[in-house]
């Protein structure tokens, strides 16, 4: 275990009276641009206050790979790949960098387990407060993305299980395709409101329903 102070960023609300607000806490179901969820082209949901852990390390270091595998239950994804296991999703970010997303109340435990397992030259940073996860589903999500990013989101270039960091509107996002019709965006907290307004505008013609959870 490395000698680094770690902090539970989502303290037990019974003991600490801390108020947590997601970057898009102000988006409620009341501002849908479309009435009927069944006929809406785009369903948008923020995965609120999820745990985001950034792992950095040497992919060629076998001990590093084994330690990560033991904790996460899977190897780290290869270039431009994302993996979903149980309650976790793992995104490739760069050749020595991966983003693990889990439930907000599980991230502290996961970070401690990772730090206990991994030795040597590595970094693990809890970036939960700096970004948020948007889940877009529906028949017209690709049409919205085509208006929003310069990246080619055609099936031939963007199969299920691929992840890219690219431009989104005048900001950027980690864009991941989870299923045929389910796309996920990891966006910066400071750009969250701007991107929300952009997506609301871009999906208006297809009908947008915000699924607040």
């Amino acid at each position: 275990m490395s000698d680094i102070a770690v902090m539970d960023q989502v303290p037990d609300s019974q003991e600490v009276n801390a108020k947590a607000e997601s970057p898009l806490f102000h988006i409620g179901a009341g501002i849908n641009t479309h009435k009927d969820a069944n006929s809406a082209g785009v369903l948008l949901q923020e995965d609120k206050l999820a745990g985001h852990l950034l792992i950095r390390g040497n992919r060629d270091d076998e001990a590093f790979n084994i330690a990560i595998n033991n904790v996460l239950g899977t190897g780290l994804p290869k270039t431009l790949q994302c993996i979903y296991v149980d309650e976790l999703s793992i995104r490739w970010v760069s050749p020595d960098e991966w983003l693990v997303i889990c439930a907000g109340d599980k991230v502290y435990e996961l970070e401690k387990r990772l730090r206990a397992a991994v030795q040597g030259h590595y970094a693990i940073v809890n970036v939960s407060g700096g970004q948020t996860l948007l889940v877009l589903s529906g028949d017209n999500v690709r049409d919205v993305l085509m208006k929003s990013t310069a990246y080619d989101v055609d099936d031939s270039n963007f199969p299920v299980g691929k992840v890219v960091t690219s431009t989104l509107a005048k900001s950027q996002a980690i864009i991941c395709r989870r299923n045929e019709d389910v796309w996920e965006l990891v966006i910066r907290r400071s750009f969250a409101d701007y991107i929300w307004l952009w997506l609301e505008d871009a999906s208006r013609e297809f009908g947008l329903v915000v699924n607040s959870k």
Partner: peptide, 12 residues
């Protein structure tokens, strides 16, 4: 050479 694919100049 790290992402192993072509990207728009906008990203660079």
């Amino acid at each position: 050479p790290y992402c192993e694919e072509h990207r728009e100049e906008e990203e660079f």
